[in-house]
Amino acid sequence: MTPPGFLRRFMGRPTVIAIPYGWLGLFFLVPFLIVLTISLSTADTSLTPPFTPLIDWVDHKALQVVLNLGNYMFLFSDDLYVVAYLNSLKTAAISTFFCLLIGYPMAYAMARADKGIRPILLMMVILPFWTSFLIRIYAWMGILNNNGLLNNLLLWLGVISEPLPLMNTPTAVYIGIVYTYLPFMILPLYSTLEKMDLSLLEAAADLGCRPLRAFWLITLPLSLPGMIAGSMLVFIPVVGEFVVPELLGGPETLMIGNVLWAEFFSNRDWPLASAVAVAMLLLLVAPIMLLQRSQGGSPHARGGH
């Protein structure tokens, strides 16, 4: 490399980094700091925007900073929020479990399919993920309704004599979430399983290990990074899910995303909505770090091959 070229390359570097860095800093990082500050202010719907400023000049002389921890206290004192939080965690955990249960065998079968059809199998998983989220949830409304497809089918088959109440139940919410988030689970699982060195299994078989035992001792531990990444890719966004419980759920499936939405849009309590968001983020710190670690580990695994 010629020295001037090297120099010029370095002069261009800061600009190339600064543009996306600056954009994400302004439009992604700063907003979170603003959420944090506004969660400490007091709601006042007579103002625009509807909260009191945190920092104020009193009589143009003194700088007054008012930190209001009341929003956070309120979150813990009112059952509604605690229940919604716990419900979100429960829903996310159960949905993640079912995504893993369905996604693992699918990813496994895809990874063991003929090399030629693997890209097609993969594209068939990605395709619904690109299709409108809203419409995929909507599709289940038509299926789970009292006079929907599933109930009609079961009635026609004579399995049931009157429609099962499926809509607006936790079951409907689980189905909707598993359905929409399944590709997030399959993709990382598939990529770890596909990279796996199959000679390990052959070696195990040669040494007299039964297939099921080999799976348990070799395949499963080796696919752990994919399982963690997939689980976190499902768990984290599901904790804050709004659309699925709103459309398929009922009063007993209230999740924290719906509470935030209601506080913001119906009650116009922006500080409380911000406090809900901050509390949700705190809940997600551990899963996000787990995800980062599992992704940080994958280049190493790739380098090994």
């Binding site: 302004l26 439009f27 992604f28 700063v30 907003p31 979170f32 603003i34 959420v35 506004i38 984290i236 966004p237 904790v239 804050g240 899910e241 709004f242 995303g257 935030l260 939405w261 913001f264 922006w270 909505a273 911000s274 968001a277 949700m280 983020l281 997600l284």
Partner: peptide, 12 residues
Amino acid sequence: PEVITGLASLLL
């Protein structure tokens, strides 16, 4: 979660 990103962007 999109509710958080949405709220944060609006407040910005």
